[in-house]
Simulated assay, not measured.
Amino acid sequence: MSPARPPADLPPHDPVIALGGSRQPIRPPESGVAYSAVLRGPDHWPVRSWFGLAFALFGYALVVPIVNQLLNGLFWLIWGQGATFGQWFARATAYEMPQGLVAGHLALATLIPISMVMVVGWHRRPRQFLSSVQPGLRWRYLLLCLPIAAVLLNLVLWIGQGSIPEFSAPHGWWWWVLVIVLCSPLQAAGEEYFFRGYLLQGIGSLSRHRWVGIVASALVFALFHGVQNIWLFIDRFAFGLLAALLVVITGGLEAAIAAHVANNVFAFGYAVFTGSVAGTRAVQAIGPTQALMDVAGFALVALACWWLGRRLKVATTTP
């Protein structure tokens, strides 16, 4: 008599063995669960999430800098004009030239495929559930959230400053505008898919309390922005909290992506006409008033996008 064999649909005992997916099929999440719980289920192993989070952070630290250097190397070969690569790279990463912004933003856009590879290849979930619980990216909702975020963030900025900023057009301004409009949305989406997407779901799979994933993903997001004073840290941490909360209560990344895109496009756009993109890139400190105004703007955007989601009856749990 042959020895007893476990049913084929049981999860493997060692989740690391299933990285290639040969022993575990791709399965949708359980029905009726929130966005942060998409990776949970009967086939979920906590150690899988711990390994997944470690792999994702390692991928961020490895892939993003490599892509940034490769793109800057290509741009240096085309536009270097006698400068050494070290000189070019220093200026490019400081965003003193539009090519540097292209390289930096496209490098961060690689966080989208990194996140999808983790969800599909490691956790064995359909990639569409990374975008929303519907599943898939709800384009109509995203495109309607964009003008809401743009209007509210600008209104709060102008009220906070007491007037509309004065503009002056520098030489080559149209190159900067073109690069910002084309590349900043990809960079913003990349960060949302990674921090409010995979990290939120990965951490959320380890705890049944959704606030654990919301707070932890926001903390990692703020820390990954490098050197900053306490008020700038609070500014970024608050944005991460509100964006993650918005993702959970609307069931997807669309509103958070819209808010992030609007914030970055206008932040860099204003920098072109009121100062310099390099100056905005180099900011490491802000005051409490600016932090308060920024958080107020983010909160208004989150509230408006949540209301819009309710009006559109967007799905907030898996089907």
Score class of each variant (00 low, 15 high):
N72P: 10
P185Y: 10
G240T: 01
A149L: 07
C145I: 12
L219T: 09
M97T: 00
L57M: 03
K313Q: 01
E192D: 14
V156R: 04
L242P: 00
N72L: 12
P170Y: 10
R5H: 12
N264E: 05
K313G: 03
A262I: 06
P46Y: 02
R125W: 03
W306E: 03
L157E: 15
S115H: 02
A94R: 07
D14I: 15
I114Q: 00
V220Q: 08
P170A: 14
P3H: 11
P11C: 03
S131Q: 13
L223R: 08
T289H: 08
I114G: 05
L70A: 13
V220M: 11
L219A: 13
W158T: 02
F268L: 15
Q87T: 14
S2Y: 10
A304K: 07
V212C: 12
V295T: 12
L53G: 09
S132N: 10
A262T: 14
G104F: 09
R23L: 15
I66S: 09
W158N: 00
L111W: 08
A169K: 07
A238H: 10
F224Y: 07
F75P: 04
R196K: 07
A256C: 12
N229R: 02
V102I: 14
S115E: 00
G297F: 02
F239Y: 01
S217K: 01
V265I: 15
R236N: 14
F51L: 01
H171R: 12
V16E: 05
F224P: 00
G104R: 04
I180Q: 02
P28M: 00
Q290D: 05
E166W: 08
H225A: 10
G240H: 02
V151T: 06
W88F: 05
A61R: 08
A149D: 09
V63L: 07
V33Q: 04
V215E: 13
V277L: 10
F51G: 00
I17P: 09
S168E: 00
Q201L: 04
R208K: 11
N264C: 02
Q24G: 10
T317Y: 02
I159W: 11
A244R: 04
R236Y: 14
P11Q: 04
L300H: 06
R310M: 12
L199P: 03
G52H: 02
V120Q: 06
F89S: 13
E96R: 08
Q128D: 15
R27F: 09
V151M: 00
L143N: 04
A90C: 10
T84I: 03
F55Q: 07
F266G: 06
R311S: 13
A188R: 08
E192V: 10
G73E: 04
G20P: 05
F221D: 04
P12S: 14
L39M: 12
A90H: 13
W122T: 06
R124W: 02
H209R: 08
R125N: 01
G240D: 03
L70T: 12
W122R: 03
F89V: 07
I78S: 07
A282Q: 04
L308P: 02
V33I: 14
L143K: 09
L303F: 04
V64I: 06
E166S: 15
M293S: 09
F195Y: 14
P135K: 05
S205M: 09
P42G: 06
L178S: 01
I203Q: 06
L155R: 04
